[in-house]
C-alpha cells in the first residue's frame, strides 16, 4: 500500500514526472532556440513560469460551465501522470504491470486530448471551440498510425504486456532494427499528439489565439501546461520503451540514466522536427496522416507479421 502510494505520488509518479516534465520542456525550448540561433531561456525558466502561473489570478468566463471547465485540467493531468506509471523505467517489475497494459497506456495518452476538448468546449469562447474541435479532428488522423506502429512492435514480441515486450527486445536487441519505420511513424504521430509544429493546428497562435486554452488562466493554465510537459515525457518514454528498451540491459542506476538519456534524445528529435517545418492546415494534416503515415504503419504491420512467421518457425 505504502509502496503503491509512493510510486503514485513521488517516484516514478507525480512529483518525479512533473520535475522531469519541466526539465524536458526546458531542454525542448533551449534546443529550439539554439537551432534558431537564439540564446534560449535560463535553466529555471520553466519552473519560474509554473510558479508564476500558480500565483496569477484565476478567471472563469461567465458563460462557461464551471464544473467542466474546472475539472478538465485535473482529468488531463491525472491521465498523463498515470501513463508514466505504467512504463517500466529500468526494472522489469513494475507494480502496476499486467497483460494488455500497452493498450491501456495508449488510451490513457488519449485522455488529455479529450480533456482539452471538454475544457475548450465548455469555456464557450469561439476560439476555444474551434481549437478543441480541431484537436479532436486531428486525434482521428494521428491516432490510427500511432496505434498501428506501436502495436506492430508488440506483435513481433508476441505479447500485449509492455514489460514482456521490453524483456523480449532486451533478449533480441537486433530486432529493434525491424521497427525503425514504426518508430518514424510514431515520432511524427507524437508531434500531432503533443500539438507541436507542423501539427500545432489546435493551438495555432496566429489563427485562434491559444485554441482550447484561450480562456484558461492562473492555476488551471499552469496545470494544463504541466499536462503538456508530462504528456511529452510520457509519450517519448513510451516510444523509448517500445522501440529502444535498452535500459533493461544495465544495472538499475545505469539503466535509469540510459532511459533518461533516451527519452531526452526523443525529445530532442521532436524539437528538431518542429524547427524545420511550417504549420499545416487541418485538411492537409489529415491528408498527410492518411496518405503517408497510415501506409507506412501498414507496411510495418505487414513486415512484422511476415517476420513473425519467419522468426518463430
Amino acid at each position: 500500500m505504502i509502496e503503491a502510494l509512493f510510486s503514485i505520488l513521488i517516484f516514478p509518479g507525480f512529483l518525479f514526472v512533473s520535475i522531469f516534465g519541466l526539465i524536458a520542456e526546458y531542454i525542448d525550448r533551449k534546443l529550439y532556440a539554439r537551432l534558431q540561433n537564439r540564446v534560449g531561456p535560463p535553466w529555471f525558466q520553466t519552473f519560474a513560469d509554473f510558479i508564476k502561473l500558480l500565483g496569477k489570478e484565476d478567471i472563469v468566463p461567465c458563460d462557461a460551465t464551471v464544473r467542466m471547465f474546472n475539472s478538465a485540467p485535473l482529468f488531463a493531468l491525472t491521465a498523463a501522470t498515470a501513463t508514466f506509471l505504467y512504463i517500466p523505467i529500468w526494472k522489469a517489475q513494475n507494480i502496476f504491470s499486467f497483460n494488455g497494459d500497452i493498450i491501456m497506456i495508449l488510451y490513457l495518452l488519449t485522455i488529455p486530448t479529450l480533456a482539452f476538448f471538454i475544457g475548450g468546449w465548455y469555456s464557450t469562447s469561439l476560439f476555444s471551440r474551434i481549437g478543441s474541435v480541431r484537436g479532436v479532428t486531428q486525434l482521428f488522423a494521428y491516432e490510427v498510425p500511432l496505434f498501428m506502429a506501436i502495436l506492430s512492435a508488440a506483435l513481433l514480441a508476441d505479447t500485449w504486456s509492455l514489460k514482456e515486450m521490453m524483456l523480449f527486445y532486451t533478449r533480441h536487441p537486433a530486432y529493434c532494427l525491424f521497427n525503425l519505420a514504426g518508430f518514424a511513424v510514431s515520432l511524427v504521430a507524437l508531434l500531432g499528439k503533443l500539438e507541436k509544429a507542423p501539427f500545432d493546428i489546435p493551438e495555432a497562435e496566429t489563427e485562434i489565439v491559444a485554441g482550447a486554452f484561450t480562456e484558461y488562466s492562473g492555476k488551471r493554465l499552469a496545470l494544463l501546461k504541466l499536462t503538456l510537459d508530462i504528456e511529452m515525457v510520457a509519450g517519448s518514454a513510451l516510444l523509448v520503451a517500445v522501440f529502444f528498451p535498452f535500459s533493461l540491459m544495465f544495472y538499475p542506476a545505469l539503466g535509469f540514466v540510459v532511459f533518461i538519456i533516451e527519452v531526452l534524445a526523443v525529445i530532442a528529435l521532436l524539437a528538431l522536427l518542429r524547427t524545420v517545418v511550417a504549420r499545416l492546415r487541418i485538411d492537409q494534416m489529415i491528408d498527410f496522416c492518411w496518405k503517408y503515415l497510415v501506409p507506412f504503419a501498414l507496411f510495418q504491420l505487414l513486415l512484422n507479421i511476415i517476420l513473425k512467421g519467419v522468426l518463430y518457425r
Binding site: 537551432l35 534558431q36 540561433n37 537564439r38 540564446v39 534560449g40 528538431l272 524545420v276
Partner: peptide
C-alpha cells in the same frame, strides 16, 4: 533547412544579451 538549423546549433547565438 535542416542543415542550416544544425549548423546554427554550433554557432554563437545572434542575440545580444542586452
Amino acid at each position: 533547412m535542416i542543415r542550416q538549423v544544425l549548423y546554427s546549433l554550433f554557432k554563437k547565438p545572434a542575440t545580444n544579451l542586452y
